[in-house]
Structures are given as C-alpha cells and as structure tokens.
Write a protein that binds this DNA or RNA. Structure first.
Lengths: 233, 233
DNA sequence: AAAATACTGTTGTATATACAGCGATATTAT
DNA sequence: ATAATATCGCTGTATATACAACAGTATTTT
C-alpha cells in the first residue's frame, strides 16, 4: 500500500474518532500540530481535515479550532443486499436462476467506477424468486482482479453477496435509488404487467478503498418496497 | 461583496453549467487555463473545481480533463429531510408553495402509525421547487398532540423539518421507498410528462419513542435520484 | 478595578513551485 | 505498415511561504 500522505493523516484521525479516543466535542490537534507530527506541511494536514469535515465527522471553527461532531445516523440500508434473508424471514422460499455469466473488458463509466481500464470484469445476471415469483433482477459486475475466482461459483446456491463477503471485507457502499420505466427485457424477466414501474437500486461496493462490485438491482414496484429503520443520534 | 477568488471562479463555472453553455459531457478548461484566465494560481483554480466536483456537478478524469456531469438531483438518505439544503448547495434557488393546510381526525393506518386514535392530526401539502421547477411533493401529517402550534407556522419560509427539529428531538426514522405510477393530481402538481414514474418515500419520524410525523415525499423519476454513501463497519 | 492594547493561536485564502503518474499524440525506428 | 519511443497536457500530491481575520488571553494603561 502506498497511500498519499494526506490519506495517512486522515486515517489516523479516523481511527481516533472510531475508537472514541477523541469523543464528541473534542478539540483535535491544530493543522500545524498534525503537520509537525507527520512531518508534513500544514497544507497537507489541512487537506486531511477537510476530507473529514466534508464527511461531517469534524467541524471547523475559524480562529478557534477543529472539533469532533456528534456521530451521524447510520442507515441500515445494508439490508438491501440480503434479499435472501428477507424472503426467508417471511417464511417463503428463495431461489435463484442464473441467466448469464460472462467476462468482459468494460469501457466508459463502468470501467471508471470499477477502476478497470483494460482489465477484465465478470458479469452475471441473476433472477431472485420468492415462491417462484420473480422479485429481483440482479445485474452484477465484479472486478476480476479483486475477485479472480468469481465465475467458478454456483450462484444458484450462494448469493453473490455472501460470496463477496467471504473473500473481501466490504468497507464502503454507495447506493443510488431511482424509479424507472422498465425495458422490454426487464419486463419479460420480472414478468411485469404493463404500466408497472420499477425500483432501480445501484450499488457500488468498495473494499479498502477499491471498488470490487457494481450491482444494479431491479424490483417490480407492485411487489417490492425498500424499508430501513434509522436511529438518529 | 468581497468573495474569495476561488468562489468567484466557482461561480463562473456554475454559471456556465446552469446556462448549459457547458453541456453534459463537456470538457471544461483545465486548471492551468482557468488559473491564467483569472490571474490566479493553479491551486486556487483547482480549489474551485474541487468544490463543484464534491457537489457532483463535475467529474475529473486524471490525465485527461474535467467534465460536466449529467445534472440530476442527488440526495443522501440522511439528507432526505434537507431538500432545501441540497438545492441551495447546488447554488440553485429553493422555494416552497403550500397547497393545503388542514386539521383532521385520522382513521385506519394513519391513526395507527401516529398513535392518534380520536386525536387531531395536522396535514399540509407542500411543493418544493428547484429554480421554480417542482422537485418534490410533500404530504405531511403531524401529531397535534405532540406539536400543537404546527399550523401556525409559515411553511413557505421554514421547512417542516426545520420546524420539527426545533420543537422536538427526532430520534428514530423509518423509511420506505417505492416506485409508483403517479396519480393524475400528482402528475399535475409535479408537472410530469406522460409515462414518467415517481419515487415515493414514506418517512415516519419518532421523537423519544413517540411518532410525531408521517411524511410522504414524491419525486419525479426523471429529475431525481436518491444517493447515500455508507461506511460499513 | 476597568478599559484599552498588544500578543498568540488557529483557521482561511492565495501563490509559486516541484515532481509523479498517466493518457493521448506525435515522432522515430524497425 | 507497424512497433517502439519521446513528448506534451492534465490531474494528483506535496511543500514552503505569506498574509488576513478573528477569538481568546495576557499585559499595560487609565
């Protein structure tokens, strides 16, 4: 690993925050102090702090100092990935059908988000069924570099996410939720009635700062809701 | 006005973007070009660009250039309540129109979720506009018992959430997200084209274990995405 | 004792500079 | 023609430096 220096400093601060060594309201070392501590220039230390400020973890008060913010509400949106669990918890049967499985070299946005320029990416398309009725179409792209044995798995038995969790620590996720009008193919695969819109959930998953998976999940609007409980601190 | 120079440059870029002079996909001038144009240093021009990148308006591709992103509303899930902040952070104007304001005694599910059997509940319907284009229809039910002075507020100036936050600590939220086909009234109020589905976000907010608000937020699918970054512990 | 003043620490803005990494293009060699 | 090589442009990181603005504290003056 060869992280840039400002990341190193940001990681250091992050650790202090997550360990609560620097609790809510704590005044963290000044830019100058951090700079000398890490033999960096003040501007570099500043950049680290600003990253955390933009994440809402710190707050700056001009002429006074930088302080630890109250910890944010955390969303349990993670449950999205566990469609299998969710179906089983309703006492229904969950099954999967693998529609396709292939290797490609992406270009454009996909290459960019997966940091896979001129590198191989695996793609699978899977339909998740609840009591044999389609509930989700999963279109999944996985970095071949990060997860080389991906295609050898049997995804009618193990879910993609279960497998990914077992081979790499998933550290970050970026989720986008949209409402869309389904394409013809989507309508066919999800056995949709005319006029039923779709929920489209796009999820980019990172493992230690590197993207390993790009998932697009489609749900029929008439059979699916996303729910999440959040405790606000 | 005595704006710092990097703000001046950022405003300049923003103007180019909102006027569509620099359309989606356009490669904007490089850091060096902007710097010389404004007689600033490269680092200052860079700071302007980075501000807009963090707002999702621009995207940088190392060694290649900086490009205009497709304009789409973005919101992190925790900021759902803060649509006003979100719009302002994009340098756009946020305005609200109150469509209706009334008191009712609910029955059925609403009475149940608000724990308001035979009790009064306030209802308001508000349209949120970004640059005078509707971006959200808010249908809000608030427990009269918990927030007795609710209807006396001017919700064309203060958002409902700002007010609720000021009178009660919001501790928990339960969010449901759906895709729906808009009703006629909804189509009219959000000025929707035919065939455009809607994102429907339902949020029940609790204060110390008691529900105080039931909100239904509708967003046009072609103008809005919900995004959320999550750090997985 | 109270008020005015100076000092120190911290963040905010701005510049000039340097080099690394990489994509794209042009040039040269095969 | 093709392949190897060099060059250029652009972003990314890093440093050293300078000054402004302001809060809080210490010191001096009244």
């Amino acid at each position: 690993m060869n992280l840039p220096k400002y990341k190193v400093i940001a990681d250091y601060i992050n650790k202090k925050l997550s360990s609560l060594e620097w609790p809510e309201g704590f005044k963290i070392p000044s830019e100058t102090e951090l700079a000398t501590q890490f033999s960096a220039s003040r501007m570099t230390a500043r950049k680290s702090i600003e990253e955390l400020v933009s994440q809402g973890l710190l707050k700056r008060v001009p002429s006074v100092g930088t302080f630890v913010e109250p910890s944010q509400a955390q969303s349990s949106l993670l449950e999205i990935r566990n469609i299998s669990e969710e179906i089983k918890s309703r006492g229904h049967t969950h099954s999967m059908t693998v529609l396709s499985k292939l290797t490609l070299v992406p270009n454009g946005e996909l290459a960019y988000t997966l940091e896979a320029n001129n590198k191989k990416v695996f793609k699978v398309i899977i339909v998740h069924l609840e009591n044999n009725i389609p509930l989700q179409l999963e279109e999944r792209y996985v970095s071949a570099e990060e997860v080389p044995l991906f295609l050898e798995q049997d995804f009618s038995k193990t879910t993609v996410n279960e497998y990914l969790c077992s081979v790499a620590p998933l550290t970050d996720a970026e989720i986008t939720i949209e409402a869309i009008t389904p394409t013809k193919i989507l309508k066919h695969n999800l056995k949709l009635e005319d006029g039923v819109p779709c929920l489209k959930v796009t999820r980019i998953t990172l493992s230690n700062g590197h993207p390993i998976s790009y998932a697009v999940l489609y749900h029929p609007a008439d059979r699916f809701k996303l729910t999440s409980s959040i405790h606000l601190k």
